[in-house]
């Protein structure tokens, strides 16, 4: 690692003030950023750690009945505390990385990084969640802008993520066995006004909605409704773990499994 200073503010306001320096960067749980720093793929002059900010941590329900999760909440906390309100989201959080990673990694960090194979973006997009930052509120449909790219501006912190609770939902991950990241992950969420299907791990553009499947499942929420529907392999990731065609196939299979599990 290159040398840098580290600051650990106690409040959101102090964190926003601390990020002023040109090459400063926020540090969430560090489960991606620290390995990146070790590889010397990033060289910030200063890190502003968000782990000491109590107001960013924890879950609450708002008046609209949404589960609201603080940006600094760890995956382990979401797995434990969201289970009663939004089981599919809790189950997703319970399978990120491994237990020690889940005790550090945060939802805000995951969303700010927007790894194309991360799990949380699928839940956020399928749930049409609202991402609240230190400046504004961003709808999930406007938030994810491509691989490792989001609508966040420099110095903006994800303070809360608000999830409307679906009637039924399920997440299916085909895990890459070494990294536990999704080779393909599919989050299906059924709301009163329709079904949303978000795919992670598959596209070179990061998380995306499979609109053909959404249309079919909104008419009939049954795995049979997407039988014969093939995801387009164009623009999907091809690497040593799987070809674009393989990933396209997995999208169909996992979507079917998610619908069956959610409906059951």
């Amino acid at each position: 690692m290159y040398a840098f200073e580290i600051e650990r503010p106690k409040s959101l306001a102090d964190a926003v003030a601390a990020i002023g320096a040109e090459e400063a960067q926020f540090l969430g749980g560090g489960q991606t950023l620290i390995p990146t720093l070790k590889q010397r793929l990033a060289a910030p002059s200063k890190l502003v750690s968000l782990s000491g900010i109590a107001e960013l941590k924890g879950l609450r329900m708002d008046d609209a009945g949404r589960v609201c999760i603080g940006g600094g909440t760890t995956h382990a906390t979401v797995a434990r505390e969201a289970a009663a309100h939004y089981p599919a989201l809790a189950a997703l959080a319970a399978h990120i990385g491994d237990p020690a990673v889940r005790n550090r990694g945060t939802i805000g960090g995951s969303l700010a990084n927007n790894d194309p194979s991360a799990c949380y973006p699928a839940a956020v997009l399928a749930s049409n969640a609202t991402i609240v930052t230190s400046n504004r509120e961003i709808a999930a449909d406007d938030y994810f802008e491509g691989m490792f790219t989001t609508a966040l501006e420099d110095g903006e912190i994800v303070t809360e993520v608000r999830f409307p609770i679906p009637q039924a939902a399920n997440y299916q991950k085909f895990a890459q066995p070494a990294s536990r990241f999704a080779l393909v992950g599919v989050f299906v969420a059924k709301y009163a006004d329709g079904v949303r299907v978000a795919i992670t791990g598959a596209s070179e553009q990061g998380v995306f909605r499979w609109s053909e499947a959404e249309a079919a499942l909104s008419k009939s929420f049954d795995a049979a409704a997407i039988k014969g529907l093939a995801a387009d392999a164009d623009g999907l990731i091809g690497d040593m773990h799987g070809t674009p065609a393989y990933r396209a196939h997995l999208i169909g299979v996992l979507t079917g499994r998610a619908v069956t599990a959610a409906a059951g």
Binding site: I6, L27, Q31, L47, G52, A100, V101, N103, R104
Partner: peptide, 13 residues
């Protein structure tokens, strides 16, 4: 009280 990987956490934290 929580298990963490000490190679992926800064001492300052």
């Amino acid at each position: 009280g929580e298990a963490v990987k000490s190679c992926t956490m800064f001492a300052a934290e």
